[in-house]
Computed example of a mutant assay.
Amino acid sequence: MASEAQQGGLTEYIQHHLTHLSPHVSAGGFWSVHLDSLAVSLVLGVLFVLWFWATARKATAGVPGKTQAFIELVVEFVDGQVKDVFHGDRRFLAPLALTVFVWVFLMNAMDLLPVDLLPWILGKFGVGHFRAVPTADVNMTFAMSLTVLVLVIFYSFKAKGVGGYLHELFTAPFGAFPLLWPFNFALNLVELAAKPVSLAMRLFGNMYAGELVFMLIAGLLGAGSWALFGLGVIGYTAWGIFHILIISIQAFIFMVLTVVYISMAHDHH
Rank of each mutant, 00 (worst) to 15 (best):
A159R: 13
Q7S: 11
T237Y: 04
G161T: 04
G88V: 04
V260T: 07
N184Q: 05
W53V: 15
S263C: 01
V100P: 05
I249P: 05
P173W: 05
G62F: 00
L44N: 06
F52Y: 10
L180E: 02
G80N: 03
I71Y: 00
H20R: 14
I217Q: 09
M215E: 10
V104H: 06
V197K: 11
S248A: 14
V49Q: 06
T147D: 00
H24R: 14
L122V: 06
L231W: 06
F52I: 15
W120T: 15
G88C: 08
W53Y: 13
G28A: 11
Q15Y: 09
V233I: 08
V260W: 06
F92T: 03
V85W: 00
L44W: 02
L35R: 07
E4I: 11
E12C: 11
L245R: 15
V150G: 04
A94V: 03
R57P: 05
A172E: 00
D116W: 08
I253N: 13
N188P: 04
L50V: 14
G163D: 01
G235K: 10
A251F: 03
W181T: 02
H17C: 13
R202H: 10
M140P: 02
F48M: 13
Q250R: 13
F130D: 01
A159V: 06
S3A: 10
P114R: 13
G9I: 08
H243T: 13
V85T: 12
P182L: 11
V127P: 00
L199I: 09
V63I: 08
L42E: 01
N188G: 00
M1G: 04
V85Q: 08
G205F: 01
F157I: 08
V260L: 10
G65S: 02
N206M: 10
L192A: 12
R90W: 05
A61Y: 06
V213H: 11
F125P: 02
P182N: 07
L18T: 12
P119E: 10
D36V: 11
A209Y: 07
S225Q: 05
S22W: 01
I71M: 07
K160A: 03
E12N: 15
W120M: 14
L113P: 00
L169M: 08
H269V: 04
P114E: 03
F177P: 05
V260E: 09
G80A: 01
H24I: 12
L113S: 09
A69N: 12
P196C: 13
L146S: 12
T11E: 12
L73A: 14
F77G: 04
A251P: 02
S145P: 08
Q81C: 12
T67M: 08
L151K: 03
L93Q: 08
I249C: 07
A194G: 06
